[in-house]
Structures are given as C-alpha cells and as structure tokens.
Computed example of a mutant assay.
Amino acid sequence: MALYLSNKIVGEDETKAIQLTIEYDPQTIFNSGNYSIAEEKIIKIAEKKLSKEAKKGLGILGMIKNSKSILKMIK
C-alpha cells in the first residue's frame, strides 16, 4: 500500500527508488527492490535518497513540496 501511495504522490521512478532504498523485494507492483535487478536510473535516484543531501528534503519541507499531491489523494 505504501508503494502504491508513493507512486501516486511522487511517481513511478521515485517510488522504484524508494523500494530499492529499503530493499523491499517481495511480489510488488514494481520489480526494483534489489540492486541486482533495478534499472541504473533507479539506482542513481536511490543513492541520492540515501545521501545527506536527500535528508535535507525530508520533514516539513518535503510535506510542503508535495502538499498539492497529498491533497489530491484526499479528495
């Protein structure tokens, strides 16, 4: 469910990168939960998410950035 919601909020590539970052690899909607099978562009997005730079976008600023998408899902 979390990956489904993430896909609605930030899109497929970002969601695949999240899946890879947490190494979530059961039967899911995307096949990118393992570095050995993930696409190169997804690996790069995931690595960015794991960096210190990515942490700056978390928290209240991340919520503000995605507020329009979150509100669309609630309606």
Rank of each mutant, 00 (worst) to 15 (best):
T28F: 12
T21A: 12
Q27F: 11
K41V: 04
E39M: 05
L71Q: 13
K56Q: 11
K52W: 13
I9L: 13
M1A: 13
Q19M: 08
P26F: 06
Y35T: 11
K56G: 02
I70S: 05
S6D: 05
E12V: 15
Q27L: 12
E53K: 11
A17R: 01
A38T: 01
I22E: 05
Y35D: 02
L5E: 08
G62F: 05
D13F: 03
K52R: 13
F30C: 05
D25F: 10
A54C: 03
L58H: 06
L71I: 15
G11Y: 02
D13Q: 11
P26M: 10
V10Y: 02
M73A: 08
K72G: 01
A17I: 03
D25K: 14
G33H: 04
T28A: 14
A2P: 00
T28W: 13
L50K: 09
L3A: 04
F30V: 06
K16P: 01
K75V: 03
G11C: 04
A17V: 02
V10E: 07
E53I: 05
E12T: 14
L20G: 01
A2W: 02
I22T: 07
E40Y: 10
E53S: 12
Y35N: 03
I45P: 00
I45M: 05
A2F: 08
P26N: 12
I29L: 15
N31C: 11
Y4N: 07
T21S: 12
N31A: 13
S32K: 01
I43Q: 12
I42S: 01
K44A: 12
L58D: 09
E12H: 08
Y24H: 14
K48T: 11
M73Q: 12
N34T: 09
K55N: 09
M73C: 06
V10D: 04
I60L: 13
D13R: 13
D25V: 01
I43V: 15
Q19P: 03
I60K: 15
K41Y: 11
S51A: 06
K52C: 10
I9V: 14
I18Q: 01
S67W: 15
I74C: 11
Y24P: 02
S67H: 14
N34M: 01
L58F: 09
I60G: 05
M1T: 07
I18R: 00
I64G: 04
Y4C: 03
K41C: 05
L61K: 12
